[in-house]
């Protein structure tokens, strides 16, 4: 195996690992937000608008960590500066 193929192999494995670990954290956080939002909606149906709005904002904030992982893994796969074949 040449240095280039070792680099490519490492990049591919790391991209998959990044996405897997990043998705776990975001999924756990979003499930808690969803559960808390449902709970608040059941307690105070009158405040549905404000609860839903704030819930979406919180979901987007948590989701962005997974999106950062996605961007990093896509950089590793398609725009890797160290692998001559990619990017």
């Amino acid at each position: 195996m040449t240095a280039q193929s070792i680099l490519a192999l490492g990049s591919i494995l790391t991209a998959g690992f990044t996405m897997a670990v990043g998705a776990v954290g975001a999924a756990l956080g979003e499930s808690r937000i969803g559960a808390a939002g449902m709970d608040a909606l059941a307690r105070q149906p009158d405040e549905a608008g404000a609860i839903t709005r704030n819930q979406f904002v919180a979901l987007a904030m948590v989701e962005s960590t997974a999106i950062f992982c996605l961007v990093i893994s896509l950089v590793l796969l398609f725009a890797n500066p160290y692998v001559s074949g990619g990017g």
Binding site: A60, E63, S64, I67, F68, V71
Partner: peptide
Amino acid sequence: LRLFGNMMS
């Protein structure tokens, strides 16, 4: 990055 990642993905 949030907007870019969501739209591009």
